[in-house]
Design a protein around this nucleic acid. Structure first.
Lengths: 224, 224
DNA sequence: AAGTGGTCTAGACCACGTA
DNA sequence: ACGTGGTCTAGACCACTTC
């Protein structure tokens, strides 16, 4: 355990034991620096981690204070669907349903159009995730050469394309007739839907709508 | 924009423009330090942010390399339900449905028991979130004195209790008859369910199961 | 206005993992 | 075995925000 970890542990203990109650100011950096006998940078590193965790707040000239659970954030990690399925011990398979180039929309893909893909990811032969994928051919023209016949767009994107910004939306919906049939669930069965938009800088790269039968899938996040 | 931000921006540009393609090694710290004319710590800070964003990977003695979207993580921030409703411009109201102390389970709350609360959060008078809450009275004995009659457990927890670890699970389900009635949706209507377990160190603090009519609610996450 | 947190520098030592 | 990234120190200047 590094020194800044030790210092952070001790700070956590003080918060936990009520020595630094929620809402109270904690000692200034220089005080802590002397007390722990460490350099200022080391103390600051411990404090920064606590800020990331959402346990303390820092304001210039006003010191730092302990906060409650308000600003608790978690990390959401959505792995490759193949890895997700294989990590559960199931056999992964893939089926391309549709692939076509469509004209652009709303200023996205207006020059080269949009590559539109619909495909299915299966676990032990049973439908697990229905993927509606749109790829912007203005920013990713190489995608036009990808058949996506034996592996999905995800695999290719992960291997080739870096992204700086991802927006993920998680929602629930009742399965419409067509989707219900593809996913082999009753009509109006609950679905868990993950929608992701991916950007590189300001450039829009791709968009995915991933529908799962609710019984088979849930999203889990861990704290920072 | 601070120097480490400028350096990071330039690194992002190189990744974006393919000067540093996915899978390739990027220059060593000392090379970058010289090139940018900054201190090593500043370059390292820029690199650290890129690691957090999941854009590069670092391995001792082997250098750093650009990775694809595999390890993309997002930050999930679930605010106080009251703030969520008010930020949409609706009037928030609260109704306590049930409150009772139950014996502990699975080693959780085995001394003092568990405080079990069921309550409803409404937007403009319409049901928005049904909350099933369990509070561990071993770790949070003060909770036993809280009536939760006019404000929910959330408000109290946020004000009083810090947490170091939060596990969040997001799932979908069809509304059972009783829940459907409380939420004023048809039976079997899709629900978006957010479950959270909260810990301070190893100590289990509280657990919540938050059910929302799917039409009214979705979870959004942003990249780091 | 002043003191806090934020940033940056320059240097050193260390441990680990790959070559 | 050795060079890389990881950590820590000591010091300085700055800008913001509260007092």
């Amino acid at each position: 355990m590094s020194r800044h970890d030790e210092i952070r542990q001790e700070m956590l203990r003080r918060i936990n034991d009520g020595e630094w109650p929620v809402g109270s100011d904690i000692p200034h950096e220089m005080v802590l620096t002397e007390e722990f006998g460490a350099a200022r940078g080391t103390v600051r590193r411990a404090l920064s981690t606590l800020v990331e965790q959402g346990l303390i707040e820092r304001r210039k000239r006003a010191g730092s204070r302990v906060v409650g659970q308000t600003s608790q954030t978690s990390k959401l990690h959505i792995p490759l669907i193949r890895e997700e399925i294989e990590s559960r011990g199931h056999a992964y398979s893939y089926r391309l349903l549709e692939r076509e180039v469509k004209p652009g929309l709303h200023g996205i893909g207006t020059r080269n159009g949009l590559l539109w893909v619909r495909c299915l990811h299966l676990a032990d032969g049973a439908p697990f995730q229905l993927e509606h994928r749109t790829i912007n051919l203005d920013t990713l023209p190489q995608a036009a050469e990808q058949p996506f016949r034996v592996t999905g767009p995800n695999e290719w994107l992960v291997r080739e394309v870096p992204a700086t910004r991802v927006i993920t939306r998680i929602s629930a919906a009742a399965a419409e007739a067509e989707i219900a049939e593809i996913l082999a669930v009753p009509e109006h069965a609950p679905l868990l839907i993950v929608s992701r938009e991916t950007f590189m800088g300001e450039a829009h790269l791709t968009e995915a709508r991933l529908s799962h039968p609710a019984e088979q899938y849930q999203v889990t996040t861990l704290s920072i």
